[in-house]
Design a protein around this nucleic acid. Structure first.
Length: 600
RNA sequence: GAGGGCGUAGCGAAGCUGGUUAUCGCGACGGCCUGUCACGCCGUAGAUCGCGGGUUCGAUCCCCGUCGCUCUCGCCA
């Protein structure tokens, strides 16, 4: 069959300048907008590279004028014409190509476009589900074009760094063994083995460790990962990690390499100079000071330990909490321009605290002459100055306090209040604030199942000073673990790994996995560790989240070409979907439907 | 599993102490227009007010339920 004949572009819609005046060109693109003045007709033609104004002049042939009159938004067309300078008074400096225009000699309609389900000019933002249904149109918007480009540039810069520094890019399988712990696995049935399943990887963790045993001492991969958990603004069923691992390294080697890499990448992609080294904060300090393990350091509003002050107050609830080995923490919300700490505002803060497990949120307003008023101020009579000095509070500020017996809840609920205030009071500075969170606990106790489990994952190395007390006191063991945090988002997580069979088995046992189960589930790793495994460690930054932050978005859907929605489906292709009975039978599967919601 | 928000022409919004011919902008369709650039002007069509039930003489509006989306808690080693 003959190829469809169409005039193929000789340039793009972004590149024409004054220097091109007089040239005959062909442009291919979409009708972004057209302004038909009858005898004079302007068409903004758009492609990935920009927008160029095409003019159908009054001297155009009748055929050309008729074709131009038929154009509608988003028709895909080819324009043949001559570049010319715009008249002086008609130059549009808001357009990159605003000094020139193309006088059309002919226009071919390559394809028509139905009336649009939504405008793609970025003016009004349609409902997200509609955007996802018509993602091919949404992708044409300037915002999506820019974000997908940014993502490309980011990944490209990362690859350039790793290629130059002699890392190998190695792929690992996406059909792997399902292993216990962690998130819910996506399962893929095996046709050959009835009842057996592959899992999609939650991360290439074990494979990259085995690559280390395999002698590839510097590995990286842009890896797709899958976790079958509820989606969030910063979480999707599938997401992309920069996965990397190195042999013969210690923690600081990994941290410093990442610092160097992100310095280079942020300079290339954002033209931003990051600090040579990122601040390091221990998990414990981060929880105490910022109320979470992913602090947003773009603003202060630090949390203070108020146990001493609470004991001296006349507030029984505070005193009792401290006596019961609990915690009283607080922060001081500054009075800013336009701030009004009304009852309604305080109530909203209390609601926030409660969502995160606080029983209440005590408050007091700072008045003139070191006086407090409202809320719990009456319990601080006689020590008002002490409380005010603790925060160096000013008149009009609002002191907020939480008492909780559970340390973590006390921290996180206060932290949630801190985060809300940061946003509400507009305290957040522009820019990128990276930090490392280090010295994470290796284990946390699972109350429901009544055993210890890995706080991160089971392959992280305990810090040396805890090796003797691993089993006797798991709760106090800190690991060689580190997270990279950017602007309040956890952007990477890594560790130095265990490479000793006996130590690995010991960790499994502490996590309630006996030797037999460990051999069944992780035998391949344990076996590998019997054959001269190197000391190794690595990290895995989340690509989606980092691009999201760079693009100043709050949802990773904005930086993924084809994301799923919150309900874990894709409105565009309508997946997931039912499959034919034959397919199920071939896979030895039978669908069991829940009582309600039997079909949707 | 739980909570908050939203659901009104193709899209974005307004309306509602319960009575309207349900409003506006964009888009669509038809016409006019020689320098626009979010072109302008004139005209036309387009809405079971998410769905079901209840209260009421009367419901887009109030109540209950339900569905969908969205944000959050749980969950996410």
């Amino acid at each position: 069959m003959a190829e469809e004949a169409f005039s193929q572009r000789t340039t793009t819609c972004g590149g024409l300048t004054k220097a091109d005046a007089g040239k005959k060109v062909v442009l291919n693109g979409w009708v972004h907008r057209d302004r038909n003045h009858g005898a004079l007709h302007f068409i903004n033609l758009r492609d990935r590279y920009g927008i160029t104004q095409v003019v159908v002049d009054d001297d155009a042939s009748k055929e050309l004028q008729e074709t131009a009159a038929k154009l509608r938004m988003e028709f895909c067309i080819a324009v043949t014409g001559v570049v010319r300078l715009r008249p002086d008074t008609m130059v549009n400096l808001d357009m990159a190509t605003g000094e020139v225009e193309v006088k059309a000699e002919s226009i071919e309609i390559l394809s028509k476009c139905l009336p649009l389900p939504f405008m793609i000019d970025g003016e009004a933002e349609p409902n997200e589900d509609l955007r996802l249904k018509y993602r091919f149109l949404d992708l044409r918007t300037q915002g999506m074009q820019e974000r997908i480009k940014l993502r490309h540039e980011f990944i490209k810069a990362i690859r350039e760094y790793f290629y130059r520094t002699d890392f190998y890019e190695i792929e690992t399988p996406t059909l792997i063994k399902s292993t216990p712990e962690g998130a819910r696995d996506f399962l893929v049935p095996s046709r050959f083995y009835p009842g057996k399943f592959f899992a999609l990887p939650q991360s290439p963790q074990l494979y990259k460790q085995i690559l280390m045993v395999g002698g590839f001492d510097k590995y990286f991969q842009i890896a797709r990962c899958y976790r079958d958990e509820d989606a969030r603004g910063d979480r999707q069923l599938e997401f992309t990690q920069l996965d990397m691992e190195m042999s013969f390294v210690k923690r600081d080697d990994v941290l410093e390499l990442m610092e160097e890499m992100f310095n280079e990448v942020f300079m290339k992609v954002q033209n931003v100079q990051l600090p040579a080294h990122f601040r390091r904060i221990t998990y414990h300090d981060s929880m105490n000071t910022y109320g979470n393990d992913k602090p947003d350091l773009r603003f202060g509003l630090e949390i203070h330990d108020l146990n001493d002050l609470a004991t001296k107050s006349s507030f029984d609830m505070f005193k009792t909490t401290v006596e019961n080995k609990g915690f009283v923490k607080g922060l001081c919300a500054p009075k800013t321009e336009g701030t009004n700490f009304s009852r309604k505002v305080i109530d909203a803060l209390q609601d926030t605290a409660k969502i995160y497990g606080a029983k209440g949120l005590a408050w007091a307003k700072v008045g003139a002459d070191n006086k407090l008023s409202g809320g719990v101020s009456k319990f601080f009579v006689g020590m008002e100055e002490e409380l005010i000095n603790e925060f160096d509070a000013k008149e009009g500020d609002l002191i907020l306090m939480i008492a909780q017996e559970d340390w973590k809840k006390c921290c996180t609920s206060m932290g949630a209040v801190r985060s809300k205030l940061g946003k509400d009071l507009d305290l957040i500075k522009e820019g990128y604030e990276f930090c490392w969170i280090i010295d994470f606990p290796l284990f946390e106790f699972n109350e429901d199942e009544n055993h210890w489990e890995a706080a991160h994952h089971m392959f992280s190395m305990p810090q040396a000073q805890y090796l003797d007390t691993l089993e006797s006191d798991p709760g106090s063991v800190k690991g060689d673990l580190y997270d990279l945090v950017l602007n309040g988002y956890e952007c990477a997580s890594g560790s130095i790994r265990i490479h000793d069979v006996e130590l690995q088995k010991k960790i499994f046992r502490i996590c309630n996995i006996d030797d037999a189960t460990a051999q069944e589930k992780f035998g391949f790793l344990l076996d590998a560790f019997k054959f001269g495994p190197p000391p190794h460690g690595g990290i895995a930054p989340g690509i989606d989240r980092m691009v999201m932050i760079m693009a100043q978005q709050t949802s990773i859907k904005e930086v993924i070409a084809f994301p799923k929605n919150t309900a874990a489906c894709s409105p565009m292709d309508d997946s997931p979907s039912f499959v034919e009975q034959d397919q199920l039978e071939e896979l030895h599967l039978k669908a069991i439907f829940p009582e309600k919601k039997s079909d949707k």
